[in-house]
Write a protein that binds this DNA or RNA. Structure first.
Length: 449
DNA sequence: CCTCCACCGGAACGTGAGGAGT
DNA sequence: ACTCCTCACGTTCCGGTGGAGG
């Protein structure tokens, strides 16, 4: 976030000093801002009565000491992992469950307890968490693993620029220096880009003498093992644990427990927790969503200086979360994909103007995109590539793209904007292409009119 | 019933940036 | 300078696909 006023300050002062004359930058107006507003900038905020005691407790990254309604899964995990304390390799586990059902939290909790217990009884047990979304190749996984065991005092460095088999060999030698158990947690294991990685990792114990390794794979996708090699599949899923979605009542429990620790008493109206829970339960019982909703509701109430949070704040929070998400997604898109969003915007505006309620189709959208690209002096990408962008925008929830057959007139995708047009236009207001495309929209419309 | 359109979407491949060892 | 790798981004090719229309 860049504060526009601060950029103005910078540009003004540099402008003055760049004239070449030895003039001191005029800072009188800065003083004015200081004295008149900045001095009191935080006063009002500080005067507001905070509703939080400990905001962190409602953060999705906070891992509480207990996880309500996950006792059974935690016990199961602990039973399977217990052999690690005798330096035996526990069975490999696959943990399934939708986002926000406590998979990662439960495993982190059990992992920490396992490491603590190991220290207590004088054994070496390490639990290493790797997110395959960011570390999706064998090479990177090996590097991450190796880094955990590199002796800080030695000169060993992470290896880059070596053949993968050499990195594998070096990682093994680092792992195998002493008797220990290592549990590798592969979060979002379905994002792993190489099947060979799983093959090697599940057979790693054959190449080790002192260390025992076992794998915990976490996946949202129940079918992710389907395309895998049968040997990998059986070795990876020796044990399977499924985390079912929380229902609304369980979500209420979670929210109550957390808010008791996070908030001052009597801050929440009675309907708030049931409403947050119900809204999150609609989306596959996602506790993260429920917590976000509650936290943002409280923040909104706090900002409005309200003494209690009501359903009104929850609704506002729900809107805000969705708007922020869409805006963030669109702003972070690469230029070509944003040009496609502009094409959608222009077509949607045109259709609305013409009173034409029908959805866009791929061919139509591609032509509009190509025209817009040329206007801003970009080379339009191939239709194949743009088809992938359309799928991506669909999965991001910005549009809905449905494959339909128009019979003799071919197969296409019917594309509908899922964000209100005015909101999309608002989001694109400060986009780098908007100004240049402003007149095109008009030209296009008059031409088509 | 068959044809055929306008795409879909998988597969294979190319390119170039970037990082670090040799 | 070269090697060995990842990774992002893109293209071309081509076998489907499903229903309107002949």
């Amino acid at each position: 976030m860049i504060d526009p006023s601060s950029t103005k300050l910078v540009s003004k002062t540099t402008e003055q000093s760049s004239t070449g004359e030895s003039v001191q930058p005029d800072i009188s107006y800065i003083k004015r801002i200081d004295e008149q507003s900045l001095m009191h900038l935080f006063d009002g905020i500080l005067k507001k009565k905070p509703l939080f005691i400990d905001r962190e407790r409602l953060s999705t990254s906070y891992i509480p000491a207990t996880l309500p309604h996950r006792e059974q899964e935690i016990t199961e995990l602990a039973n399977i992992l217990a052999p690690a304390l005798d330096l035996n390799a526990p069975s490999n586990i696959i943990v399934y469950g939708k986002p926000g059902v406590g998979k990662t939290a439960a495993i982190t909790l059990v992992g920490k307890e396992l490491e603590r217990k190991a220290i207590e009884i004088g054994k070496r047990v390490s639990v290493i968490h790797i997110n395959c979304q960011y570390t999706g190749t064998l090479y990177r996984i090996l590097n991450t693993l190796a880094q955990q065991f590199i002796d800080n005092l030695s000169n060993d460095r992470p290896f880059i620029g070596l053949p993968t088999d050499e990195v594998y060999a070096k990682t093994l030698s680092l792992l195998d220096t002493t008797n220990r158990a290592v549990i590798i947690v592969l979060d979002e294991i379905d994002k792993l880009k190489e099947d060979t990685a799983l093959y090697l990792l599940t057979r790693i114990n054959n190449d080790l003498h002192n260390t025992k390794v076992s794998i915990i794979g976490i996946s949202n996708n129940l079918c992710f093992t389907d395309p895998l090699d049968a040997r990998v599949k059986s070795s990876l899923s020796q044990e399977t644990i499924v985390f079912n979605p929380y229902n609304a009542e369980q979500l209420q429990d979670i929210l109550r427990t957390r808010s008791q620790q996070a908030l001052k008493p009597d801050v929440l109206s009675v309907e708030v927790i049931p409403l947050c829970a119900a809204l999150a339960a609609q989306e596959h019982g996602d506790a993260r969503k429920a917590l976000d909703l509650l936290r943002v509701s409280i923040e909104i109430a706090e900002r409005k200086c309200d003494h209690a949070v009501s359903s009104k704040h929850v609704r506002l929070a729900q809107n805000k979360i969705e708007k922020d998400r869409i805006a963030e997604v669109i702003h972070s898109l690469p230029a070509q994909e944003r040009l496609l969003v502009h094409a959608i915007r222009v077509l949607q505006r045109y259709n609305k103007h013409m009173g034409n309620p029908s959805a866009m189709i791929t061919g139509e959208l591609y032509s509009q995109y190509a025209e817009i690209s040329k206007t801003v002096h970009y080379t339009p990408l191939s239709q194949r590539r743009v088809a992938d962008f359309i799928s991506e925008l669909d999965s991001l929830g910005i549009i809905s793209a449905k494959v339909i057959s128009k019979g003799r007139y071919g197969t296409t995708r019917e594309i509908q904007l899922m964000v209100p047009l005015t909101e999309l236009e608002h989001i694109l207001q400060d986009d780098e292409f908007t100004e240049e495309l402003g007149h095109i929209k008009m030209k296009n419309q008059t031409k088509l009119l």
